[in-house]
């Protein structure tokens, strides 16, 4: 309850800060539109030459694209700004303020900043999903919807945990921002179903930088190609990464305060 109220407070502050720079909204809108044009244009060219891509029909790839925008938008709205602020705080020493607050530091660090205009990506993602689902309506029942919700949640948690782990490295290294660039670069690859990639690349995108769980897997759920194993792996991966990232965070924090020294 307390943390929910905190979350809402930060959300409000994020909105206030964004309202200070209203023009950014229009700029963000242009950027989202461009991103969308690139993605849809790519699909259009591909489907000029084939009826399906590795077994994925146009409407199914549209659903995948919707998930890609949705998760990408959430990363850019909530996860990335907070993690960037956290790394900045370590560099400037202002993390001390966070640590002297009577609340869980991981929670504070993870919800401390929002860039709300980036929500346009989330909007586009939802719209794309709606269109795609409209076309796929015959194959999506309540079971698929439930699995979609579950895999989407798992994907979101996996992405968050990976970001937390990467950001936690800044307790030891100064320039970690660049690692985050790696994540965003790999995420771009997740715009296409990972099933088309050669095995080595699929392995990287599934386990090393697990973006596959954020886009391909939820899209599989909604296009009726989900098997229980994948569902189990996604949920298990989310649980494991949550625990691992929490442990790593606490370890980093102990290092920061010098318990191990």
């Amino acid at each position: 309850m307390h943390y929910l109220r905190l979350f809402l407070t930060y959300l409000k502050l994020g909105l206030l800060a964004e309202l200070e720079y209203r023009a950014n909204f229009w700029i963000q809108l242009v950027q989202t539109a461009m991103e969308l044009a690139l993605a849809l244009g790519g699909l259009a060219v591909v489907f000029r030459h084939t009826g399906d891509l590795g077994g994925w029909r146009p409407a199914e790839l549209l659903a995948l694209l919707g998930v890609y925008f949705l998760i990408g938008g959430l990363i850019r709205t909530m996860v990335r700004p907070s993690m960037q602020k956290f790394m900045e705080d370590i560099r400037k020493g202002t993390l001390d303020f966070t640590l002297t607050k009577p609340a869980d530091a991981q929670v504070l660090v993870s919800i401390q900043r929002f860039e709300l205009w980036k929500i346009t990506d989330v909007g586009v993602g939802i719209a794309l999903l709606a269109i795609a689902l409209g076309r796929l309506s015959d194959s999506v029942g309540p079971l698929q919807a439930a699995m979609f919700g579950l895999t989407l949640l798992s994907g979101g948690l996996i992405v968050y945990s990976v970001w937390l782990i990467l950001a936690t490295f800044s307790f030891w290294f100064v320039k970690v921002e660049n690692i985050l660039v790696i994540f965003m670069t790999m995420y771009e690859a997740a715009r296409w179903p990972v099933t088309i990639y050669p095995p080595w690349l699929r392995w990287i995108l599934t386990f090393l930088i697990p973006v596959a769980f954020a886009t391909t897997v939820p899209a599989q759920a909604v296009t009726g190609r989900m098997d229980p194993t994948t569902l189990g792996i996604a949920a298990g991966m989310a649980g494991i990464l949550l625990v691992v990232s929490r442990a790593f965070w606490l370890y980093g924090l102990r290092f920061y305060s010098g318990a191990s020294a």
Partner: peptide, 25 residues
Amino acid sequence: MGQRNQLIWDIPVVDSFELNRAIYN
């Protein structure tokens, strides 16, 4: 800490106060 800030740069002071109110309950 005299050399470090916790107030949020882009928003009015009172809103940063509100945040601490929420954190400290």
